[in-house]
């Protein structure tokens, strides 16, 4: 079991196989972050249908982004902070 999990992780994150061009990586982030123009996005979407390194790279980066949003703990604002700010402002 331990080995299987490790292998999975190494597969997901570790193996350095296959290369694509620098522009693809730049486009990949633009698309992922909602910064791409319509043309860039269309081009990238059709590109990843044919290019498996870029497809995989996109899926991994996108899931890291999603996991961050989901899993990073949200700290509660201390209850006295708002009052203390207002207090200071009224001084």
């Amino acid at each position: 079991m331990k080995e299987a999990i490790t292998n999975l992780f190494l597969k997901i994150l570790g193996k350095k196989q296959g290369y694509c061009c620098k522009d693809c990586v730049k486009n990949l982030y633009s698309v992922m972050d909602g910064e791409a123009t319509k043309d860039q996005e269309e081009y990238f979407r059709s590109h990843i249908n044919e290019c498996s390194p870029c497809f995989n790279r996109y899926e991994i980066d996108k899931s890291v982004k999603e996991v961050l949003k989901l899993k990073v703990e949200h700290k509660e604002v201390p209850s006295n902070l708002i009052a203390s700010i207002k207090n200071k402002l009224n001084q």
Partner: peptide
């Protein structure tokens, strides 16, 4: 700079 690309994904 070439980017290493990882393979075989299970999101």
């Amino acid at each position: 700079v070439d980017e290493p690309i990882t393979t075989d994904l299970r999101v």
